[in-house]
Design a protein around this nucleic acid. Structure first.
Lengths: 295, 295
DNA sequence: CAGGTTCTGAAATTTCTGATACAGCTTTTG
DNA sequence: CAAAAGCTGTATCAGAAATTTCAGAACCTG
């Protein structure tokens, strides 16, 4: 990923990337609220947000021009033009040396932890995508796009939140969508009306939960179609599932990461929404209208 | 800087880089002497030379200010500010292109859709990490690691699921953790016992939800510390938040992606777990024991 | 809850930049 | 070589942008 080859021998001066962005990140908590807003805007579109006029910058950040001025003054610049000049020079320097791009953030405790965690998660996402069979993904999209089907989401103690997340989106895109709690006591009654027309989308990763498995087995026995989102070791639900989408979950933590499952969920939502667009659009507008009326 | 070598055959797809630099090169010999000077300066430090003031540019090029103005007018711009704006936009587009590669254009099949969606999400994660102030992240970790604090998670209609996800993990690592529904009717009563010892962790991204904002404002007024996970445009909750962690959320979908928020959540869980390990470990074991007994 | 401190934005002020008119210079052309 | 056409820079202006001032608001602190 990087071209640090040249870096090697401490030939370079002491600190190499005296990036303003970095300084801002470090000083962040010493800023006043409106300074923080300015800082966040600048960092989120670094450094282009700073190349406009003061007025433009202020309005984008949602603060007043004087606050912007105070912000740049506090950073040690003589004035806004000075500040812009610095940004331009930094940008030019960075653009001319191809190596700058790679790793801008280190320092302190938080950054490395967060950054390495993120890299690990990103690795999971890539691995997840590579190991999904396109046909399987498409089949699930088709299944969830069938308006005659009833969709039920469920999950375990951690993954239940993902099931809710999925449900809250699909509920808006199409009808006949709901969420089922994992505990048997809560779904036993409902099972009477689960049948061939139903789809169970189950989220389950290791420390597989018996109650979720039981739910899926029961539903399957009654003719429902089961879709499973799980880890690469496959939840026992896989035995009754028609479609299985595994996601990589190992992260440098005492806990597993659900990012891959979330990715799949969001990709499914996006694809189904696109596929059902003609009916989803008016539906979404109607929902929006109801929401705004309420307030 | 680029691939104009191929020019000859009109082989290139449509038009790829409508770069101003290229146009200038082509029109070069139609310029007057002082225009050529301007053009040479601009091309030799493209596009940074053009980002200074007219006077600066003129002096570097060894010509007068009016000549510079005539130059940009001849290029078809309405004035010098227009010209600069174009340069900035071109630069920004070029700088972002390596990331924004994932074109949302492909319609067809699952795999490409999934893959490009994933790339986009990965871009979000990277951008998110880049823009988090390490100090801010550390401060939040410290806050959530304080056993004397009571932690409450809350969120909007979609982000509520993330709040639940966070809660389900923290609940196991430490005590005094709960989840608050966003609707005012459901939290009004609870507010009486919210005070200086409490921490509200709110998830809120655009289409910011008024009820969540109200909850945080009320809590803040009573002395609680508010931590906000939001998008780069910052939920209004930022006004009362002590700490803000913004995540990039734009994805090739009709919906925003919460992957960045999930990343931050999991990173926080990991860091806090590590930090509280001495007390968290026995606690986790106890929870495990209880769970296995029950079945 | 009062007193003091800090923060913030509206408006007035100053600075500076981009734009224009015009006159002199250079180059071209018959 | 003279006249015309085209360039170019000086001086000036208008307008916009940055900066400062100041009073009100929010926030602590005791």
């Amino acid at each position: 990923m990087n071209q640090s080859g040249m870096r090697g021998k401490g030939r370079l001066p002491p600190a190499d990337p005296p990036s303003l962005a970095e300084r801002i990140r470090l000083e962040m908590d010493a800023f006043t609220p409106s300074e923080k807003r300015a800082a966040h805007l600048l960092l989120s579109h670094y450094p282009f947000a700073g190349l406009d006029t003061v007025a433009e910058f202020a309005s984008r950040a949602g603060i007043s021009a004087p606050s912007v001025l105070r912000f740049v003054t506090r950073l040690g610049f003589g004035g806004f033009p000075d500040f812009q000049k610095h940004l331009r020079e930094e940008l030019e320097a960075q653009l001319l040396s191809p190596l700058a791009k790679a790793s801008p953030s280190d320092k302190g405790q938080g950054a490395p932890a967060l950054a390495s965690f993120a890299e690990s998660v990103i690795g999971n996402l890539r691995a997840t995508v590579e190991n999904i069979a396109p046909a399987e993904f498409d089949a699930v999209v088709a299944l969830l796009s069938d308006p005659r089907r009833h969709i039920h989401f469920t999950g375990g103690r951690f993954t239940g939140a993902l099931a809710r997340y999925a449900e809250s989106h699909f509920r808006i895109v199409r009808s006949h969508v709901d969420f089922i709690e994992g505990q048997p006591a809560l779904w036993r009654d409902r099972m009477v009306e689960i049948g061939r027309k139903d789809v169970i989308v189950a989220f389950d990763i290791r420390r597989y939960q018996e109650d979720v498995t039981a739910l899926c087995e029961t539903a399957s026995r009654q003719g429902a179609t089961v879709v499973l989102l799980t880890d690469p070791w496959l939840s026992p639900i896989a035995r009754v599932a028609r479609h299985v989408l595994p996601a990589h979950i190992v992260a440098p933590s005492n806990w597993d990461s659900s990012a891959g499952l979330l990715l799949l969920t969001e990709a499914l939502v996006a694809s189904v929404t696109k596929r059902l667009w003609d009916t989803a659009k008016p539906r979404m507008e109607a929902v929006e209208r109801l929401r705004s009326e309420r307030s």
